[in-house]
Design a binder for these strands. Structure first.
Lengths: 349, 349
DNA sequence: CCCGAACTCTGGATCGTTCCAATCCTAGTG
DNA sequence: CACTAGGATTGGAACGATCCAGAGTTCGGG
């Protein structure tokens, strides 16, 4: 590994294809082939060209390549602000996996922002200026106007999140099975001996919230438990959860809580502390998303963890199929979350 | 606001400058001027061209523009994985501010990744392929090989983080005054009546950790307090912090803790809980970075919050100066963090 | 009425790459 | 030995924008 023989200093001109061609005594096209179709060259020629490329430290100019091939190798992602006080660890972990995975095939992630009141803002511009090859659409929590828009425009994209309201949507998507997550959480508490297990979730308008809630409900039904009065809807806020947990805990038969978020789960832990109840031993609590907060809160909050790394890998895989106009094996794909068990739900701590 | 008159459907060809020129009955150059130097056109012509642009839904092809002007309007950022269990909320908040700020001047953020063992990985490639206009370098916690490398290459960049080990570095940087943060945290606890205030920080090799520690130290000295035996170095881990807090709390005169991170602060809260000490009332605790965990942990962890929005704004401002080869007003710029007071440090709760 | 300056607008060249069609070379065949 | 098939290589054109130099138009002043 020797350093490329580039000139040090300000404003150096990077070598071009023509430079390399001259230096190697071949035509521009041959250099291009050395990079894109190496098997077209005679082995000796290939090696000669490659050594010049190495020596000059040549990388093809992305703009020129993009102009000619109409492919930027960029994946657009609209980056929404994580609300303060909600678990943003999710996006962080997902984003890194995406960047990492995409880079393995020479793609980069382009972040853009848009007017929070207009979920379509930003997409159109990038599309018309052919700045990105494709989009990853992530914030499908409240309907999916972006997906509808992009589908209509014929733009390549994959959604992280199922098309809740458009059962006949025709685009590719990946999602995590929130109902399954809540189900295994509930089953875990049942296995720990809890019977009357409450649900703390979001308002009815949240599709993700409804999905998760259904998992709790089905697990309870399967166990022959009545859920009446046990399912509660509130905003994603520690103190709200704490209050509601207090109300529920007035009934001493209630000993388990499955929550739609870690924030809510932590609220329940606070209520336990207020009442001198020991989490794990007296009361079982499970949160959702496995945020930093779940990991550091005393005594450790059991939580449902989304397989974001896997989501990223699948997204990129599907994206390549879409870009190659290949048949997609399955329009939608559901991945399963896993339970990370901590002391808030273990009787035998 | 009417919808642009574009054809709906798959694989539509976006209009080009030439299309617009034909349609408006002017030359390509005139259309180009309408976009980039509108004041060169006669008002009527300008309006005519603009209406055609509007009607066709034209946006200049980024690749072509980038090729000609040698400017991609992309800012490169190497996106490091947040270690699991450490406060990654920081990056999330910062990144969003950066994307938002950059977009105001038509710039986008390009994320890339690289071999974790090689801090330079990824930069060179983007530089040689002229894929980005400039870089934002963020992870300057352990020396700044990237800055040295980029400076040597004459690449435009701004660092978030001061050049710890190179006092004569010549690049622009923005940083947050960690010493000041620790100082106001310590002063706050002193004002609450605490005298013997401990420091929980990282190992000596962490420059950021050392900087923050110095703020604690100077505030203590200014108050005439002896810090011997009160400054502790450990890894960024809840349980480690809890153990060390227990050791320190064996001395009943120790009633305050300033920590280099929220994770450590939460460890101290756990130790308090173990000993039946009431945070705020009996023991004052302050963390660092104002993560989600600080916000939701009982009883609310006072924390030092970095002005990341402001950091982003300044970074982008300086970046524009650098790109325009303008004189930079100040090589480095230090921003002040603020204390977010919660119940873990308030006696009058 | 002519001239030049200022204002508008135009057409060709160019950025660095890949596409395309043609040419050169080599070896195998009749 | 001519002829051809196929592999290896080449030069010109094109992608869609901006740069540059020059041409056409308008207008005021001598």
């Amino acid at each position: 590994m020797t350093q490329p023989d580039v000139q040090r200093g300000r404003h150096q001109v990077p070598p071009t294809l023509a430079t390399v061609a001259d230096e190697a005594g071949v035509s521009r096209q041959t250099v291009s082939n050395a990079l894109n179709n190496p098997d077209l060259l005679r082995p000796e020629t290939l090696e000669r060209v490659q050594s010049v490329i190495e020596r000059l430290g040549y990388s093809p100019n992305r703009a020129a390549r993009q102009l000619r091939t109409r492919s930027s190798h960029l994946i657009g992602l609209r980056f929404e602000p994580a609300q303060e006080g909600t678990s943003n660890a999710l996006m962080d972990r997902f984003l890194h996996s995406l960047v990492e995975t995409a880079s393995r095939t020479g793609h980069h992630v382009l972040l853009f922002s848009g007017d929070p009141d207009n979920p379509l803002d930003g997409y159109d511009d990038l599309l018309r200026s052919t700045a990105v090859d494709a989009f990853v659409v992530t914030d499908t929590y409240a309907g999916t106007p972006q997906s509808v828009f992009l589908e209509e425009r014929g733009a390549p994209f994959v959604a992280f999140g199922r098309p809740w309201d458009e059962p006949d949507a025709d685009h590719a998507w990946i999602d995590v099975d929130g109902a399954h997550g809540a189900r295994i959480a509930t089953e875990h508490l049942l296995a720990e001996g809890h019977r009357r297990i409450a649900w703390l979730g979001w308002e009815r308008s949240s599709r993700i919230g409804q999905d998760r809630r259904s998992g709790w409900q089905s697990a309870m039904h399967a166990a022959g438990e009545d859920v009446r009065g046990l399912g509660v809807r509130l905003t994603d806020n520690v103190d709200a959860a704490r209050m509601r947990a207090h109300e529920l805990l007035q009934d001493p038969s209630v000993t388990g809580f499955v929550c739609a978020s870690d924030t809510l789960g932590i609220g329940v832990l606070h209520a336990c502390a207020d009442r001198g109840l020991r989490p794990g031993t007296d009361i079982g609590v499970v949160g959702f998303d496995d945020s930093l907060a779940a990991q550091v809160t005393w005594p450790g909050l059991t939580s449902v963890r989304q397989p974001l790394e896997q989501v990223a890998v699948e997204l990129v895989r599907i994206l390549h199929l879409v870009l190659a106009h290949k048949q997609i094996d399955t329009k939608g794909q559901m991945l399963q979350p896993a339970l990370v068990v901590r002391r808030s739900s273990q009787r035998s701590g």
